[in-house]
Nucleic acid binder design. Structure first.
Lengths: 346, 346
DNA sequence: TTGTACGCGTTATCAT
DNA sequence: ATGATAACGCGTACAA
């Protein structure tokens, strides 16, 4: 390319990048030649030289889990704006896979990484995180380290959920937890127990089902709950996908929602609003969360001195549709079976 | 690193890569030193030197559309096996975005690209495809060029769909098409018309709604169909996501599925099997399709001489759940003009 | 304003 | 079996 124009390589570089002052006429010549030859600077060579690849790694459990893609989209929104491209990795919740993927990303000189619901306290993982490559955590944070983090307000969200069901008259509320390794799941679990106690609901360990974020978990949980002699009148699922599993099992068991069972999800996936699903749920603005994480990452990438870690806690919002109602027996049989009208918000 | 061991750089390279014969003792020393220093060869430098990045670009309309992620997962399955990482790009069906993303991927020296339902006949796009970088198309192929392609058997699939509904007694069958730019949508449309004619069903242009692959398209389509004086007794949606929209609108209109309306989707997304959805649909093994595409790409990447383009057409399978039944009137559409309450959406 | 020369970290080639 | 050296294609300090 340099030869083709008769100019020096540096001149070409500068003409194209527009860094240094170069004669208008020269620039025109160079641009014209580049256009004609279909020349494009090699991003790889640039990365090697600059030690910056304009690339960010994104680790997720599994893209094909409906709970995930919105995060990615949010990240990408910011990434494209910044001229970055996403390197995507599925880890299937397997630490070894995660470690090897992170290793690969580091080898590729990614400018930074975003870990969505990934292990972040495993020593092996932490070792890789201790390097100089910036990273941001989403929905799963470390108990021992302070990192850039974007998560939902799990405490308030769960408190709202339980309080809402309590207000409807429920006293026996079942919970399907997320995986124990997830800080978000942990936080929600603790908030659940605390609120249950505060409100004087049944504190029955049988009402806790340890699950994860899959349809199967919800399905199995509901079948388990059905075996209880004192069944819950309401169930809070680990997320919407899980709630779908609960719904499914409930149908199978001949339990109507919300008449026989109230159900609350978390996430507000696009499908939750469908009349067939009609799931009351805790809305999480995932695309915004992804974007926020990417912004945090960019800040860290571009700043000279490492900024102090920032945690962004996104408020959640209870979206009321029609999967919840007063329990058939009025909750404790202490209140009339008065049916509350359910108003869905716009 | 080379200095640290006292050996030559080439020796280090060979010891780690295991390409050339190197003394066992030397190799041990090098490996030990690498371990101790946490040294890892730079993938970027390697890419520059080898002109291979072990990276493949994947272009999709939008990750957050539920129809997409399974493809990506299938691609990734093969990619990890081959030591490749995925560069993910969302194009939102915008040609200019697609072109610029492809340009970027090419700049990054991707070993190949997989285009999922992307424009592939636009001159601007074709110019980039004409280069030496291998690529594979998924679900949207060119009419003018023969490329590596993985798609579903749209002709047979649609034929099966229509035949099934016809067998149930339906004579007025509505179709929500995918976007006109999609070859898959086009093929299905043509197969629809042909089969409708073959079977002697109503060939009414009013029964064709030009939509796309979104919930909204299905929703709008159903509301449109409802305005027809002679309404369809069955609807085939562009895909499951779209079918969900049809379902939703049907609920809103007070139409029961399958009593008042039969509905057939396409894709068999995970959620279709839920009892609440219970959608009869044309099963597409997307993860396998993604994997097949990646295999095709790898073959092309690794072969010396460009292989002749191969098209892999994946057979579909009708999965019968409970969204279809015989029409209420036996299929002659001579139904009384009884007006159902129309509820306008919010 | 423009050109020269070097280095980024590899691998391939050639010589030892 | 190993070492020295030349690319790969860019950015940049420095010289002109």
């Amino acid at each position: 390319m340099a030869a083709a124009t008769g100019h020096a390589v540096s001149t070409v570089s500068n003409a194209l990048a527009g860094k240094r002052h170069v004669n208008e006429e020269t620039r025109r010549q160079v641009k014209e030649a580049a256009e004609r030859l279909g020349y494009r600077p090699s991003a790889v060579a640039r990365s090697l030289r600059m030690k910056l690849s304009s690339t960010i790694g994104v680790l997720v459990p599994d893209v094909s889990n409906p709970a995930i893609p919105e995060f990615i989209r949010g990240i990408d929104d910011i990434a494209v704006r910044e001229g970055c491209t996403i390197l995507l990795c599925n880890t299937d919740e397997l630490v070894e896979r995660q470690v090897s993927q992170m290793q690969t990303l580091l080898d590729r000189q990614v400018d930074g990484m975003i870990l969505i619901s990934q292990h972040c306290d495993t020593p092996e993982v932490r070792k890789l995180l201790d390097g100089k490559t910036p990273f941001v955590l989403i929905q799963r944070r470390s108990s021992r380290f302070r990192d850039d983090y974007v998560g939902s307000d799990n405490l308030q969200g769960m408190r709202d959920s339980v309080t809402y069901l309590h207000g409807l008259g429920h006293r026996r509320i079942g919970l399907v937890t997320g995986p124990g390794t997830s800080s978000t799941a942990q936080e929600r679990f603790e908030a659940f127990e605390a609120t249950i106690a505060d409100l004087g609901c049944d504190e029955d360990p049988d009402l806790i089902y340890r699950g994860d974020y899959t349809v199967e978990a919800g399905y199995d949980a509901m079948h388990y709950f059905a075996t209880l002699s004192k069944r819950p009148t309401a169930v809070i699922a680990s997320n919407d996908v899980c709630a779908l599993g609960v719904q499914d099992a409930a149908s199978e068991l001949g339990l109507s929602i919300p008449q026989d069972l109230s159900l609350l999800g978390c996430d507000d996936i696009d499908l939750a609003r469908l009349r067939r699903i009609n799931l009351s749920t805790l809305h999480l603005p995932k695309r915004e969360m992804g974007a926020a994480a990417a912004e945090l990452l960019m800040r860290r990438i571009h700043s000279k001195r490492p900024p102090t870690p920032r945690e962004i806690i996104i408020p959640t919002e209870l979206v009321l549709r029609e999967s919840c109602a007063a329990p058939a027996d009025g909750g404790n049989a202490k209140r009339p079976a008065e049916r509350r009208p359910l108003v869905s918000p716009g």
